[in-house]
């Protein structure tokens, strides 16, 4: 798993396979170690056995500013159950051992990476079998240090294409993001009501023009998990 090139990554193989079948990807999100280590593994097993095309797994963090109450509560449960960064990596390694081909993406916050050491964090992620990392509070403008080290360790950096992004930001999201592009169609945090959904056609067009990695739509729907809607 350490010898991937951009052309033969798990994400690429997945998207090629789905394209042949003319299908979108279903990528569920859960927080690692929620509600505890053992049940978390069973939940992830269940997701894969039920047909998840890829996984998005969250590292618990004490102050998740981009997430709403549902995911914050999951983080708190996991931390109270004794979660740690190392236990999360160990859990991912178990998942990877059980499922060698499913793409595994992480969603987490910058301080976990910085406290571990950026280099060391990406190295551990790679060893555990992670394919991509999205840092919720590292926007394109602050991403350089993270991107360079991510690629050194064969981890795809994921960026978010937002409805309010400038053309220049979308161009950089396309250029720097690997694996897939996280498409956001709405303002607000995860799992909360918002005033309006925004049209995604315009963002999609700009991403296509810039040859961005395939988009996955973040639903952020007010149901008890974050899930992504397939995009044909």
């Amino acid at each position: 798993m350490t010898d991937q090139t951009a052309n033969q990554s798990r994400y690429n193989r997945l998207f090629e396979k789905l394209a042949k079948k003319n299908q979108g990807a279903f990528v569920p999100f859960v927080t690692l170690c929620d509600p505890n280590l053992e049940l978390s593994f069973k939940i992830i097993q269940c997701l894969v056995e039920s047909g998840a095309d890829a996984l998005e797994l969250g590292f618990p963090f004490s102050d998740p500013i981009a997430d709403g109450p549902v995911i914050q509560a999951a983080s708190i449960r996991a931390l109270q159950a004794g979660s740690s960064n190392q236990k999360c990596f160990d859990l991912i390694a178990r998942v990877r051992q059980a499922y060698s081909e499913i793409p595994i993406g992480l969603l987490l916050y910058s301080n976990l990476v910085v406290a571990t050491g950026i280099e060391s964090f990406y190295e551990k992620a790679n060893e555990a079998g992670v394919d991509s990392i999205l840092i919720a509070d590292v926007p394109i403008i602050e991403s350089q240090a993270f991107c360079e080290i991510a690629q050194k360790h064969q981890i795809a950096p994921i960026f978010i294409a937002t409805p309010n992004a400038s053309a220049e930001t979308l161009r950089q999201v396309a250029e720097n993001g690997k694996g897939y592009t996280y498409l956001l169609s709405r303002a607000g945090t995860t799992g909360t009501e918002v005033k309006a959904e925004m049209p995604v056609d315009n963002i999609l067009n700009q991403l296509r023009q810039n040859n961005a990695s395939p988009p996955l739509l973040g639903l952020g729907s007010p149901i008890p998990n974050r899930s992504k809607k397939p995009l044909a």
Partner: peptide, 13 residues
């Protein structure tokens, strides 16, 4: 320093 916020907030900042 820096601007370590979700991408969504960058235009507002």
């Amino acid at each position: 320093g820096g601007m370590f916020v979700p991408e969504l907030l960058v235009p507002a900042l």
